[in-house]
């Protein structure tokens, strides 16, 4: 055995050590990801019954029945899926541009910057599903309880104080703006809370990206007489372009992992115990996410400028 070891060249030894370093992950990836994806695919084609006594499970091959059921019979799958995808398509550009804008503001020097930055990264902490769930629950209880009246009272109070949005919308509509654009804008404004809550990590990534742009570029732009607007589009934007891909990927994945489809497939599996159908939901939604990722990344990649 020792003799064999001596025969290894330095390079081979290095590559063996490299494998040693990544070994835990490699095992985990094969066991938890490759095997699991294979099993999910298998479940989707079978009817799975749990053996509650021993904890095992039995499979009965049913072919594409689960898929057909999901798309033809199931009451809400198609709606939930399309609404999740549409929400994602609205959210992703908004979050990306909002976080780029905020990163540019936070990157400037101003008094109290440390505090403002600390506040801006708070959503990473506050974006907790548990708190969201608890609040949803309490909202449900409020609707059912006696305090319906109280809720109505506050609603009317808010109406009198609140700015009349319909008036603005009417104004823009009569200016001749297309209705679809107005819909998008109204949806964007209505989502401002969600967008801010979802853009903590993205702001961090963009701040780091902005810091890595060398100051000499801005100096050159200034000497050449570029305005702030031109500097943004000719210097800042191309330089952060590679990180836009990172952010878009992160946003899409993050957005999808909290979407309703995930909730639906969880409920179907663990409340209705229909594992095959749940696998179909997971599989279909994952494939759609991956297609969106590939298309969007390909689209951005073509227009990306790489400095190095």
């Amino acid at each position: 055995m020792k003799k064999k070891r001596k025969k290894l060249t330095l390079l081979q030894k290095r590559s063996l050590t490299g494998y040693l370093f990544i070994l835990p992950w490699l095992v985990g990836f094969i066991v938890f990801y490759i095997r699991s994806l294979f099993m999910t695919g298998q479940f989707a084609l079978n009817e799975l019954t749990m053996d509650t006594v021993n904890g095992g499970y039995n499979l009965r091959f049913v072919g594409l029945e689960n898929f057909l059921y999901a798309f033809r019979v199931h009451g809400s799958f198609k709606q939930v899926l399309t609404s999740s995808v549409l929400n994602m398509l609205i959210d992703v550009p908004l979050i990306t541009f909002f976080s780029l804008f905020m990163a540019m503001l936070l990157n400037k020097k101003f008094p109290g910057r440390a505090i403002v930055r600390a506040i801006f990264f708070l959503p990473i902490i506050l974006n907790s599903e548990a708190i969201q769930a608890a609040m949803d629950l309490s909202a449900q209880m409020m609707q059912g309880g006696i305090s319906n009246q109280a809720a109505e009272l506050t609603a009317t109070a808010a109406d009198t104080i609140a700015f009349d949005v319909d008036y603005l919308i009417d104004m823009f509509m009569s200016l001749g703006l297309p209705a679809s654009l107005m819909d998008y804008l109204v949806a964007a404004v209505a989502r401002i809370n969600d967008i801010i809550a979802a853009s903590g990590v993205q702001i961090i990534i963009f701040i780091a990206a902005l810091q890595s742009i060398s100051g000499s570029m801005y100096e050159v732009a200034k000497i050449e007489g570029a305005t702030a607007y031109e500097t943004f589009w000719k210097v800042t934007f191309p330089m952060v372009m590679p990180h836009i891909i990172t952010n878009v990927v992160y946003t899409i994945v993050d957005n999808f992992s909290t979407s309703e489809v995930v909730q639906l497939s969880y409920d179907v599996a663990f409340k209705e115990f229909n594992y095959g159908l749940s696998s179909v939901f997971s599989l279909v939604s994952s494939v759609i996410t991956c297609i969106i990722l590939v298309v969007v990344c390909g689209f951005i990649q073509k227009r990306t400028f790489y400095y190095n």
Binding site: G56, Y57, V253, A269, S286, L293
Partner: peptide, 24 residues
């Protein structure tokens, strides 16, 4: 590339097999 795939795959795609793996 597999690491990147791991980031991208939503964890709910593998939730049932994980459940079964640790169940038994």
């Amino acid at each position: 590339g597999c690491v990147v795939v791991m980031i991208v795959i939503p964890s709910h795609a593998i939730m049932l097999p994980l459940y079964l793996t640790f169940r038994q």
